[in-house]
Design a protein around this nucleic acid. Structure first.
Length: 198
DNA sequence: GGCCAGGTCAAAG
DNA sequence: CTTTGACATGGC
């Protein structure tokens, strides 16, 4: 649970592979709990998470997150997440420095198990290449616009959001690299073309 | 060697 | 309020 939260912060603009190294180090150091991490010296934390990049910034963000939990939710993550509505939880997470919309959604969905659709680089990229950006609510922030587009067209189901996002990431890695503007081989595109053609 | 990776925030303009 | 720069490592 806390590991998922830490992973969500560590993976900001970073490949998951590097994050795994950092998580493994934290695990070996037995620091994967808010209390332990909050009590850990900053320099030590920085050293442990170094492989995940931005280690100074991320160490500060992790500590800030832990300090917030210790101070405002001393009963622990489980109780906090259990007692909170998804939307309220997301808003609360957003108030913590270092937790932006995507990280908040990742924690809300993956750690707390509440339906909150995650928008990431792959989701946007695939969406754009399928022409879905035409349906975005102009006048809203891009993140919110994408999120609303998906959430207003899908049932708020945790398991489905989970799989949906995982599939988008998988497909994005394979077929929608930043350097390949045309993803004609992408199965999602193939499926859409099939569905949309008479 | 250059480009990229499941972003976020504070400082400028 | 919108734009821009900083943050940093590992893999291909």
């Amino acid at each position: 649970m806390f590991e998922i939260c830490a992973g969500a912060i560590l993976t900001q603009n970073t490949s998951w592979k590097n994050v795994e190294l950092a998580i493994a180090a934290l695990n070996r150091a037995r620091l994967l709990s808010p209390g332990k991490m909050a009590a850990c010296r900053l320099e030590r934390l920085q050293r442990l998470i170094r492989p995940s990049g931005y280690y100074r910034q991320k160490a500060a963000r992790l500590k800030g997150f832990c300090a917030y939990i210790v101070r405002n939710h001393p009963e622990g993550l489980e109780k906090w997440f259990l007692g909170a509505r998804g939307l309220a939880l997301r808003a609360e997470l957003l108030s913590i420095t270092g937790i932006g919309p995507e990280t908040a959604d990742s924690i809300t969905l993956y750690a707390a198990g509440k339906p909150s659709f995650i928008i990431d680089a792959y989701t946007r990229r695939i969406g754009e290449r399928l022409g879905l950006h035409r349906f975005l609510d102009t006048g809203k922030e891009p993140y919110s616009a994408w999120k609303e587009l998906f959430e207003s067209n899908l049932a708020p189901d945790v398991k489905m959001y989970n799989e949906y996002h995982a599939l988008l990431v998988e497909l994005g890695k394979k077929f929608c690299g930043k350097r390949a503007p045309f993803c004609g081989r992408c199965p999602v595109k193939a499926l859409c073309d099939y569905k949309l053609s008479p």
